[in-house]
Amino acid sequence: MGALEGKVAIITGAGSGIGRASAKRFAAEGAKLVIGDKTEAVFETAKMVEEAGGTVTALQIDAGVEADVAKLVATATSTYGGVDVAFANAGIIGDMGGIFEIDPAAMAETFRVNVIGPALMVKHAGKAMVDQGRGGSIVLTASVAGLNSGAGPLTYSASKAGVINLAKTSAQQLTTSGVRVNAICPGLTETGMTKPTFDYARSKDVMHKVGQLNPLKRAAQPEELANVALFLASDQASYVNGQAIAVDGGLTSSHPVTRQLLGQTAH
């Protein structure tokens, strides 16, 4: 049996990147899926899942609009009989300006998608899970940018810090329900959001520099994040709750240092 056999999972941001990789992985582990994305690419993901033998319903939605999030949860309940896993993965990079260039409207839009969206998923999927009385798992996509400065623009980083705190406070507010809430904090990962970075590196033949700041000296692939999301979604993580787990090749394991090469000693 797969890790999610017999379970129903909702995934947002499923049109590409981590969301698409997670949809394929969750389905392969036995979950019935309701997936959403703002773009039509969500239907391409659904086709991939179906061709691999999975069960899926795809909806084109805005993850920061309450009616759309409620629709995802209602669809899971009416089509598959409930919801056991909710992966609030949708997000945007948003405003790229610094502290003196803050645009309140652009900042609000970033927070609408990146913070309010996951909060709405906790609200609606969490309520459905509580009403069902069989517990569940909610996973939120944050970022290493929400842990420390230097991994993303100001507004994006602040929004992802909000997601991390949302996971912690939600886990506390769902005490005794059996519903767990955790966040994953990806490091640099090759997704649609980071495509310009990777395209530039390839065009300049400097891919060897991508991810060079972490001990593994590389970026992540979406499937590597999907594996962690799967763990948190599954019963294997039954005692993991209210945590923000960095999946970053070791980037956040250290303060800035002058690195010593393996095998060398200081003199």
Results as ranks from 00 to 15, higher is better:
Leu213Ile: 10
Gly133Arg: 04
Thr194Trp: 02
Asp131His: 08
Val179Glu: 07
Ala128Trp: 02
Ala142Met: 12
Leu213Pro: 00
Ala105Cys: 08
Ala145Cys: 01
Ser159His: 10
Thr110Leu: 08
Met129Thr: 01
Thr176Ile: 00
Ala167Phe: 05
Met96Ala: 14
Val115Ser: 04
Arg180Met: 00
Ala201Thr: 11
Asp205Phe: 01
Gly211Phe: 05
Ala88Phe: 05
Met193Leu: 15
Gly98Met: 11
Ala128His: 12
Ser159Pro: 13
Asn182Gly: 11
Gly152Arg: 10
Thr194Phe: 04
Gly178Leu: 13
Ser143Lys: 00
Leu216Phe: 13
Val181Cys: 14
Cys185Ala: 14
Ala161Tyr: 02
Leu140Asp: 02
Asn182Lys: 12
Asn214Phe: 06
Thr169Tyr: 14
Gly94Met: 04
Tyr156His: 11
Ala171Asn: 11
Arg134Ser: 15
Val210Gln: 02
Ser137Gly: 05
Asp95Ile: 03
Ala151Asn: 14
Asp103Asn: 14
Ala151Val: 09
Gly135Arg: 09
Arg134Met: 13
Ala145Gly: 01
Leu147Phe: 03
Leu188Tyr: 13
Phe198Ala: 06
Val144Ala: 06
Gly133Leu: 02
Thr141Pro: 08
Gly94Cys: 05
Met121Arg: 06
Ser177Thr: 15
Met121Cys: 08
Val113Phe: 02
Lys217Cys: 13
Pro215Met: 07
Ala105Phe: 01
Val163Ile: 08
Gly97Phe: 12
Val130Arg: 05
Leu147Met: 15
Asn165Ala: 03
Ala183Asn: 02
Ser137Leu: 09
Ala86His: 15
Glu109Tyr: 00
Met107Asn: 03
Gly162Met: 13
Thr189Val: 15
Gly117Leu: 08
Gly152Glu: 07
Asp84Gly: 11
Asp205Thr: 06
Gly91Leu: 06
Thr155Cys: 15
Pro153Gly: 10
Phe198Thr: 04
Lys195Ser: 15
Asp103Arg: 05
Ala219His: 14
Glu190Arg: 15
Arg218Gly: 13
Arg112Gly: 11
Gln173Tyr: 11
Ala183Thr: 02
Pro186Ile: 11
Gly136Asn: 05
Cys185Ser: 10
Ala151Leu: 03
